[in-house]
Write a protein that binds this DNA or RNA. Sequence first.
DNA 1: CTTGACCCTGTACTGTGGTACAGGGTGTAG
DNA 2: CTACACCCTGTACCACAGTACAGGGTCAAG
Lengths: 136, 136
Amino acid sequence: MVTMTRSKLAKECGVNIESLRYYEKRRLIDPPKRSEVGYRLYSKEDAARIRFIQNAKKLGFTLNEILQLLKLRVKKNESCESVLAKTQTKLDEVDQKIKGLNSMKKVLKQMIHQCQEATLTGDCPILCSFESGREL
Amino acid sequence: MVTMTRSKLAKECGVNIESLRYYEKRRLIDPPKRSEVGYRLYSKEDAARIRFIQNAKKLGFTLNEILQLLKLRVKKNESCESVLAKTQTKLDEVDQKIKGLNSMKKVLKQMIHQCQEATLTGDCPILCSFESGREL
DNA sequence: CTTGACCCTGTACTGTGGTACAGGGTGTAG
DNA sequence: CTACACCCTGTACCACAGTACAGGGTCAAG
């Protein structure tokens, strides 16, 4: 199996080399195999997992939430119903985030629209109700 | 004008009372008016802004990013083009987040689908390619 | 056979976003 | 007029997510 060292994985995934050790400590990645002298040897699957973690982080999930997401497929002895329920819960959370972002998008688009209209008349009345409460 | 004290605003918005002072320090809210003896007096607009901050935080924006969002409508002497460009940038960021979340959603739905199919056959092979890299 | 680039562990430090507390003032209900 | 709940400031502390560094081992090139 193809393996790579710490620095190679870090470079490939664009993360700090120390973060890998941190993720290992936080149990987000399994302890990797070691070479004879104790060097960590990462697989392609580890790289994919690191990239997943990066992506999920960008989407506003905490490391604990990401751990939950990753666990969804790990515990094989768990009942299917339980996994199903947890996955559904995560799906609902994701849906809520999407809804919130769509509201944000609407407001931003409105602002752009207002600003463009205003340019024609030489005025720029951005008094948009950004924080109106019902918008988000 | 209707005003309220620290504790009232905190209760109304469901935030810790000290967070209000923190947001003031971070310039996310304007320093509120003060009573004769120096008590902070918040307006309904402050409450709306706090709620906006809470919402944006849930969507994965940092306080600095939220500050940028709020600034979009504040500086009136700024050129319209500049505001337009910044707003567009934010809009693109929001779109990227929505895309990422939709990918996440797809994978979760797929998992649910697989799990439901498997239930019929008594097996639950959740070996989904959650971290495959191309999924997100 | 040494020099430089990597690896190991443990521990300390950083920035973000709060949260708590000390020491003091205010304001109102009984 | 005294409790009690609230307000003020400043400062200390916290968890999270890293990031850096010290002190030491490994290994390949020249």
